[in-house]
Design a protein around this nucleic acid. Structure first.
Lengths: 341, 341
DNA sequence: GCTCCTTGTGGAAACGTTTCCTCAGTACCC
DNA sequence: GGGTACTGAGGAAACGTTTCCACAAGGAGC
């Protein structure tokens, strides 16, 4: 059979009795083609089961029509939302998405960027792990780059879409102080993830502004891993049995806080109030349901993709795009009754 | 500057004073090149910041070196695990992964498959939503197809990697019966997801085998959506206040069962035991922690990718690959004390 | 009836690789 | 010393598109 290799534009042209230029025009939608001719071409194409090759087109156009997406971990609920947002936007704009996970490893991230550049992606969206990758070169050479959810100190010129983490933590702190809490602990992330220290800084600032004395002892940092988070939470709650509320800077830390509280037989919120950043699905399933700050992962992804593909002009002007967070109050934080504990 | 467009193999050849064939050999690792020449080429390439174009290579080789992955929803924890598995395997094998979500829509899935074929992916991994897409053609024309987590009735010849769902449900049912439960409800999925009805069938079979009378009334099906799941669970638990245990066929249904039980002030497990398929993260955070059947999402993805890229010969022989599940016993199921409720 | 557009079409040159030949040079073996 | 084999290297032909250019046909305007 001639079906061995798939049909090319040449086969279609021959079958339809036209030139390949005409077939190309029919499929790429450019230029004028007489209706009768178009029909003939389409019929021939259908007959031969012709699929235009993105490789051929890509070579000629010097771009693949796809975008590269780098997240720390696709199984993280927030990242997954972000990916979903990118997919949704790419879909409406007709591009495909190559996804890879860097797992916080800047080295690995650099490799992924290299690969994307080789693939001649139209652009890269990344939650950057570090500055190992040559972001500037990537942005210059063959594609543009948009950062999502994280900034890199030295790369302010790269357009960025963020959640308003500071605002989220602020609302959390205000909420807890409003409930009467004074000894509020902060479980923060040690790694240079997020705007470096932005959540911790927002926490300290808010407390200071509200006249709550800061205790260095109540702010602890943990590597973003389950065991480290658990250790940090356990250490904190055992060392300072007098804390009445805990703010977790991300869901792993929130999880750790919940588990540790359970382990220590602390009732939530009677003995200790717990709240966290990132409104992951289990926050609602928890008992009591966990108060959390919802960060718009999907919107961040969508917006980043839009920025990349649709608005190359407006990119990066006026600093990072900052999307609002929302405090979702559930049952894990209670008013402080005096004399407890 | 000549830096306008990125350097090509020709530029490198000229700069190194060799032919393009030699440069190609250096970068593709094929053929013999004298060490001195290789060094010269690499130096020139570094100088020019040359990146081989995957488009050029792809065109020549007629394959892109990437694989396409279609999941129902990247934000679903199980799917996310599966994606992570595929990424991990693709990484070791040096391929990239184009991901898209079909959201259970066979039409949309067919579009995605079309796009993948245009991209000339080396293969497609899909959790198929339906038979709209021309899987056979996709498998034939330019790439191979592997199904993951789901089978399609009419397409037994497509290699498939599944979790042993039947075994999982069986162990769940046996466990509950072993605890003394007799009126066990089954919350199943109505959509044609999964091996059609395989979980429900396993449930019925196991009960029958253990001599527990089946009550038609206790087996309900819900569309895989939060509201439908909740409605089904609520309907069931209100209608039949005498059920002592609920098996949820997937995590959305488990979530619904937990929430409904909480709403109805049923204590878990004192009043009703709950267990589900899919050991999602919140199962452990729930109070009490939920007993669940862990399905190896990551392994399924990894294995599917391996099957696709590494073992084209062994593919599809001997029926679907079936990976074992594991019953994770936590605190949500209790022994039946006679005379309750 | 001539020019001047407009519309539809085809030829051919890229685009950046890989790879099949070909070929020069050198080493080796009788 | 002549043949043989081998190594290293280059030329050139694909691979499947897009698009520039040329060109033919036909209608409008003078």
């Amino acid at each position: 059979m001639a079906e061995r290799r798939s049909a090319t534009i040449k086969d279609v042209a021959a079958a339809a009795g036209v030139g390949i230029a005409t077939v190309s025009r029919v499929f790429s939608g450019t230029g004028a083609v007489a209706d009768a001719t178009r029909e003939r071409v389409l019929a021939a194409a259908r007959e031969l089961d012709y699929r235009p090759s993105a490789l051929g087109r890509g070579l000629k156009l010097r771009r693949s029509g796809g975008i590269g997406l780098i997240v720390p971990d696709v199984t993280d609920p927030f990242c997954a939302e972000l990916v979903a947002g990118v997919l949704a936007c790419a879909r409406t704009l007709g591009g495909h998405v190559i996804v890879d996970a860097a797992h916080g490893d800047a080295e690995r991230e650099a490799e992924i960027v290299d690969r994307f550049v080789e693939q001649r992606v139209d652009g890269i969206i990344a939650c950057p792990a570090g500055e190992t990758a040559d972001w500037r070169a990537a942005a210059r050479v063959c594609s543009s780059v948009v950062f999502a959810d994280r900034v890199l100190p030295g790369l302010a010129e790269i357009p960025t879409v963020l959640a308003d983490d500071a605002g989220g933590v602020r609302s959390l702190a205000e909420y807890l102080v409003g409930l009467g809490h004074r000894r509020i602990a902060f479980l923060g992330a040690a790694a240079p993830g997020g705007e470096p220290g932005v959540r911790e800084r927002a926490f300290r600032d808010t407390l200071a502004r509200l006249g709550v004395p800061a205790e260095e002892d109540l702010v602890v940092a943990a590597r973003p891993a389950r065991d480290a988070a658990y250790a940090a939470a356990a250490g904190l709650l055992q060392r300072r049995a007098d804390v009445t509320a805990v703010v977790a800077a991300e869901h792993l830390l929130g999880e750790a806080a919940v588990l540790v509280a359970r382990e220590l037989d602390l009732r939530v919120p009677a003995d200790v109030s717990i709240a966290m950043v990132d409104d992951v699905p289990w926050a609602e399933l928890c008992d009591p349901p966990l108060t959390a700050v919802a960060r718009p992962g999907r919107d961040i992804g969508y917006r980043a993709c839009e920025l990349l593909l649709r608005e190359p002009a407006r990119r990066g002007r006026g600093g990072p795009v900052r999307l609002p967070t929302e405090l979702v109050v559930r049952g894990s934080c209670g008013a402080l009754r005096s004399g407890r504990r």
